[in-house]
Design a protein around this nucleic acid. Structure first.
Lengths: 191, 191
DNA sequence: AGCTAAGGCTATTAGCCGTAGCTTTATGGC
DNA sequence: GCCATAAAGCTACGGCTAATAGCCTTAGCT
């Protein structure tokens, strides 16, 4: 029994691959172990918390991936262009990896420091864009929430099959982007 | 062994109660059966598809409940007032029953006619409001998607604990509502 | 009265998570 | 170069769950 050379990150990698091509239902320790050509209990050496921790690590990884993509997408852009690029990159990620996106926790979950930190990076990207609109302080927080709500809601409904009509999704995204940028330009309560 | 007088709807009712006070992880057939004071296999008499069908039925029920609430909330209102009432009622439902809301399918799922029908009612409520803004046809579809994205995104992030800062959520909702109503008033491409 | 259909049960199988405890590999100090 | 030790793998097992099979009882209709 030669060493497989696993690490926590490698386990998460196998889990993501499994998620991508078999969906969230198929995410079991047995299946992950099979992909890593290892017996199931061996996974506990790298992910002591078992399935629950694996899911947690997946959420952190996905959030980080998303934050990286968004950061890259808005590089060198500001205001409306940055917002458009952000929404575009956000949706693109969700469409490319729908199962990963769906693996982000949706129900009330005890706060996890690692996940919060990853989320913070995502928020920072948005906050940086908002400074271009002159938004800071509390209003920037409200605006960030608005941006996240629109991006997440659109991505979630899109990948979840919530939009069943024939109309072009790209057009919807344009309209959504327009509503958001107009809202940011005319944001109320600016000090 | 006297009859328990179960029906599919009653099984869903027990499942919702379980969901509300123990969360989505605890939703097992065994637990539902215990609540109904019935042995686990007996549930299959009412929900032949087992756990998968139960989850499907829960999604349908939750969508219907939500559609009912939204319909009632916007009764007699139009345009901006209707939009504000819709968003308010939407968020209120999600906050009152976070686990039910989280039970709505988020990952790519084969289309289910019943669920689609329930979702259609929800879309109809929004479409009716949009007629007050002079929106019809394709643009009404894009606008409906925008409304849903904002409502769902905000509700999902709120109940999922995505908003961790201290700022008042009610203010965020006001800002979000403002952005949406302004966007609808100035919707582009109106024929 | 008796038949049929439906709703309940026990028993069983298969698959999963997670723990316990053993064995092997790799590594670092002497 | 060798040995001790920690890490990483394994097998075996217990407990829980979903789901199926087959039986019994109740309710209601003819």
């Amino acid at each position: 029994m030669p060493r497989a050379g696993l690490t926590p990150a490698a386990v998460v990698g196998h889990a993501l691959a499994l998620l991508d091509d078999q969906g969230g239902e198929a995410l079991t320790l047995a299946a992950v172990a099979a992909r890593a050509t290892v017996a199931t209990p061996s996974l506990y050496k790298h992910v002591p918390g078992g399935l629950a921790e694996l899911r947690r690590l997946i959420a952190v990884r996905v959030t980080e991936e998303l934050a990286d993509r968004l950061t890259a997408a808005v590089l060198g852009l500001s205001t409306d262009e940055a917002v458009a690029a952000l929404l575009s990159a956000y949706l693109e990620y969700a469409l490319q990896y729908p199962e990963r996106y769906a693996a982000l926790p949706q129900s009330p979950t005890p706060a996890d420091p690692e996940l919060v930190a990853a989320g913070e990076r995502l928020v920072e990207v948005i906050m940086a864009i908002l400074r271009g609109y002159g938004l800071t302080g509390s209003e920037a927080v409200h605006a960030t929430r608005t941006v996240r709500a629109m991006a997440h809601g659109f991505a979630s409904l899109t990948t979840g099959g919530g939009f069943r009509r024939a109309e072009d999704l790209a057009v919807t995204r344009q309209r959504l982007t327009g509503v958001l940028t107009a809202g940011l330009r005319n944001w109320p309560g600016r000090s």
